[in-house]
Amino acid sequence: MGMNTAVPAKKMKLSRTKGSWGLYLMILPAVVLTTIFVYVPMSGLLMAFQDYKPYLGISKSPWVGLDQFKFLFEYPDSIQVIWNTLKISFLKLVIGMISTLGFALLINEVKHKFLRTSVQTFVFLPHFISWVVLGGIFIQLLNPEYGLVNQLLQALGQEPVFFLGSNHWFVPIVLLTDAWKEFGYGSIIYLAALVGINPALYEAAQIDGAGKLKQMLNITLPSLIPTICVMLTISLGGVLNAGFDQIFNLYNPLVYESGDIIDTFVYRIGLIGGNYSFGTAIGLFKSVVGLILILVGYRIAYKVAGYKIF
């Protein structure tokens, strides 16, 4: 298979457009920088197979083979922790996609220029508030006794709920607050993509008598498919990152069952005494899973949407 692709490539070389050496020159800086600052330090990944001690360095730290990975998989709660991570992360991805895209489509329909600009600027703001601060705000809002949400519930004749202490509610709260925080900032990419749509298409549709909704479904959305494919595929690479800062600031022992994720687990392990190797092993595991999912996503995007991301 490798041979097959190599042969036509060689043939093509002879007939490349003039000045193709320029292409190599253009990609060179990115390749050099990536090599120096990403690939060379990647030797640090070897720590995952060691019992790394900072003062011994990678060359002298003892090798332990797959012990660090074994520890993760033999840990009694690991299935639950990995499952929680995947669940939260996938749901965040889906909800995030819907909310950012939905917002981009709707704000795009706002004709009033000042309104559009100000709304767009304001929705970026939550992105900048750290979870330490938001954690405090949400804990207050959701307080079972005097929190605003429960006061509303009580006014409606409902029983108050300890949202952050309930395995039933914890994940929905995490998803909702995350979507709120990021939809505005995330929509920038779609707004940029919307710019590229040919207005002639809308004009033609209008002449054909297509309504707003039809235009959105038949013109706007299809034009965004490449961007959606790119965003979804790349996000798959981070599917084992379910959002440490957020969970860490909201969770508690009552919701370990539904809310404990890989990163909070690694954090608690770290508290016992800087285990670099374990952290690196987890990072490596996450990257490998991410890589596999990106490749799967690439195939799916190609098969389903007929779009090649790269």
Partner: peptide, 13 residues
């Protein structure tokens, strides 16, 4: 793509 996903961590960098 590999550079997007893998990194050696703070100490080697």
């Amino acid at each position: 793509i590999v550079a997007l996903l893998f990194n050696g961590g703070m100490i080697p960098t």
